[in-house]
Amino acid sequence: MKTRRFIHPATVFFLLTLLVVCVSWVGSIFAWEQVQNLLSAEGLRWMLRYAGDCFTRSSLVGAVLLLFLGGGLWVNSGLLESCRQYWKHERKLSRKERRGLFLSWTTGGVYLLLWLFLAFGPLNVVRSATGTLADSPLSDGICYVVSLGLGLMGAVYGFVTDFYRNDADVVRGMSGLFRILPEYFVTLFFVIQFFAVFQHSGLYLFLALPASIWKGIYCVCCLFPLWYGRPHRTL
Rank of each mutant, 00 (worst) to 15 (best):
E33N: 07
E33Q: 11
Q34M: 13
Q34P: 03
Q34K: 13
V35W: 00
V35C: 00
Q36L: 06
N37P: 01
N37L: 02
S40T: 04
A41P: 04
E42T: 14
G43A: 07
L44H: 12
L44F: 06
R45N: 10
R45F: 06
W46L: 05
W46I: 01
M47I: 07
L48T: 12
Y50N: 11
A51W: 10
G52K: 07
D53H: 13
F55M: 02
F55G: 01
F55H: 00
R57W: 05
S58N: 10
S59Y: 15
L60A: 11
V61I: 09
V61C: 05
V61S: 00
V61Y: 05
V61W: 00
A63D: 12
A63F: 03
A63T: 12
V64I: 12
V64K: 00
L65K: 13
L67N: 00
L67C: 06
F68R: 05
L69I: 08
G70Q: 01
G70A: 05
G70R: 00
G72I: 01
L73T: 09
W74F: 14
W74P: 02
W74C: 04
W74E: 14
W74N: 06
V75D: 05
N76E: 14
N76M: 14
G78N: 05
G78P: 03
L79E: 02
L80F: 15
E81V: 12
E81M: 15
E81Q: 14
C83Q: 10
C83M: 15
R84E: 11
Q85N: 10
Y86M: 12
Y86N: 13
W87V: 14
K88L: 15
K88Q: 15
H89C: 12
K92D: 07
K92T: 15
K92L: 08
L93D: 08
L93G: 06
S94W: 08
R95M: 13
R95S: 11
R95C: 14
K96L: 13
E97F: 02
L101G: 06
L101W: 04
F102M: 11
F102D: 06
L103Y: 07
W105D: 08
W105N: 15
T106Y: 06
G108H: 08
G108Y: 03
G109C: 11
G109K: 11
V110E: 09
V110T: 12
V110G: 04
Y111V: 08
Y111D: 08
L112G: 09
L114C: 12
L114S: 04
L114F: 15
L114E: 08
W115M: 10
W115P: 04
L116W: 14
L116T: 11
